[in-house]
Structure formats: C-alpha cells, structure tokens
Amino acid sequence: MPPTALSGPRTFTRRTLLAVSAVGLVAVAGCTSSDDGQEAITSEQADELAGQVAVQETLVAAYELAFQADPALAAAAAELVTQAGEQLDRLRAAAPGDRPAGAAPADAPPVVGAQEWLRAQVAAAATSHAAACLDQTGARAALLGSIAAGLRGHEALLA
C-alpha cells in the first residue's frame, strides 16, 4: 500500500518509532544521590556497576589480543574494538567511586581460531552485562542493557 493511500498516517521516524528515544537517560547515569532529583544508587548497585567496568576492560583487552593474533580479523573488525571502547567510556562515566581494574582474559587467543575465541569473550561479557542490568535501575539499567545488546550484535557479526 503506498504511503499516499493511507489516511491519517503516523510517521515512523518521528512519532511511532523514534519518539521513544532515550534522550536524557544517560545524563543521569553515575549519580549517587537523590538530593538533587537525580537517581540514587545503592552500594550494592555501585559495586556491581564497578564490576561491569572491569568486565568491559577485560573485553577490550580481549579484542586487542585477538587482533594481535589475527591481523586479518583486526582489519575486518576494527570498528568493534572502537565500539567496545566507547561502551567502556560510558560505563566508567556512570560508575562512581573507586573500581577494581579489569583482569586480562583468562586465556590467550589461539593462533588459529582467534575469531571464535573473541566471539566467546564477547558473548560472556554480553551475558554478564545483561544479568547486571536486571539488578540496576534507571539510566544505569538502560546503559547496561544497551551495551549488552550492542555486544550481541558484535557476537552475531563474529559468527
């Protein structure tokens, strides 16, 4: 059915689809007090969020190791590590206080099969962020959920 045949249409991009944009969600991420009307965060939530920063740091390190092991993968998937770094920046901005440093990946990527190894690292990080998302609220939940979804996209691309 052509668009002109529709009566009283709604526009996908402005009303139905993108009117539900998340503008402002991130602006409150990282708040530790509700005194100024922003979101409160419990100590448990703060600790868990700090843990997710470490998870993301480990993932970024995994990307770098995999790219060192497989230069062709590095060339083909360079954007992914950039996005993982962007995710890490957003998590760091949202996580208040001191944080433990992320550990290096538990094992090194194989010379053959670095892509599959990396995919497993991405999947593990996505699962971790998704689980943590359920224990957070507000902007922090939105951020972790979005990162987890973004990593599911990475995982799909690496398949």
């Binding site: 944009s21 998340a22 503008v23 402002g24 969600l25 991130v26 954007e79 992914l80 950039t82 996005q83 993982a84 962007e86 995710q87 957003r90 996505a126 998704a130 939105a142 951020l143 959920g145 979005s146 990162i147 987890a148 979804a149 973004g150 599911r152 996209g153 990475h154 995982e155 799909a156 691309l157």
Partner: peptide, 28 residues
C-alpha cells in the same frame, strides 16, 4: 533489545551500511 540488535546487524549489512553494529543500541 538483544534479539532486535542481532536482526538489525543483519539488516544493516543487507542495506549496504558501512557500519553494521552499534555500541549503544537504542540509546542516544
């Protein structure tokens, strides 16, 4: 959200978009 982003990666590829993944799907 996760399932939708996996589909979106596939569609971005089919649409010929140079960037097929998103760091923060759904988040401005």
């Amino acid at each position: 959200l996760g399932a939708g982003e996996v589909r979106a990666v596939s569609w971005r590829t089919a649409a010929g978009q140079t960037s097929t993944t998103r760091a923060l799907p759904g988040l401005s």
